[in-house]
C-alpha cells in the first residue's frame, strides 16, 4: 500500500522558494507535489495553487481548483503530497485533517515549520498519511520520501 516516493533536490528547493516568497514570513502557503499515473513513485511537478492566506491558514481558490482538476485529467497526473507551512511548530491541525485536497488512503501531507524560513530540508517537518479508516497517522518522512 505505502509508496516510497522519489523527489529531486531541485524540486524541494523550488518548493521552499514558493513557500518563502508567497508566505513572506507572514502567511501560510501550500504546494502540491504531482506525479504521472504512469510512474507514480517519481514526483515530477511542483504546483503552487492560487489561494487566499493569512497568518494562521489558507484556502484554495475555487475556480483555480476546477481548472486544476481538469488539467490533472488532461495530463494524466495525480496529487501525491500536499505541503504547507505553519507559523511555528509543524503538526496537523483539525482544519488540516478535515479539508485536504484529497481524502484517500495513502495520501500524504507534509507540514513545514516557521513559514519555511529555515534551511531547505525536513528538519522539524511533520509528515502524516491518510489511513484506510480515513484517519491521519504520522509517518517517518524517510519511509515515504527519498531525495534524489
Amino acid at each position: 500500500m505505502s509508496v516510497l516516493y522519489r523527489l529531486e533536490w531541485g524540486m524541494l528547493e523550488e518548493t521552499f522558494k514558493h513557500l518563502r516568497q508567497c508566505g513572506d514570513g507572514r502567511d501560510e502557503c501550500q504546494i502540491l507535489w504531482l506525479s504521472s499515473w504512469d510512474m507514480p513513485e517519481v514526483i515530477s511537478k511542483v504546483v503552487h495553487p492560487k489561494h487566499a492566506a493569512h497568518f494562521g491558514g489558507f484556502v484554495l481558490d475555487d475556480d483555480w481548483l476546477n481548472k486544476f482538476w481538469m488539467e490533472l485529467g488532461d495530463t494524466n497526473m495525480g496529487i501525491r503530497f500536499q505541503v504547507h507551512t505553519h507559523p511555528g511548530e509543524a503538526f496537523h491541525s483539525k482544519t488540516d485533517d478535515e479539508f485536504p485536497i484529497l481524502h484517500k488512503p495513502g495520501f500524504l501531507s507534509l507540514v513545514i515549520p516557521n513559514f519555511g524560513l529555515g534551511a531547505v530540508g525536513f528538519k522539524d517537518a511533520y509528515l502524516t498519511e491518510i489511513q484506510t479508516n480515513g484517519g491521519w497517522q504520522e509517518v517517518p518522512i524517510e519511509s515515504r520520501l527519498v531525495l534524489t
Binding site: L60, W69, H86, T95
Partner: peptide, 14 residues
Amino acid sequence: DVLLLRPSTVKGGA
C-alpha cells in the same frame, strides 16, 4: 459530460 469529483473546500491552518 465530464463531471469533477472534488472536495467542496480545501484549506489548512495552524
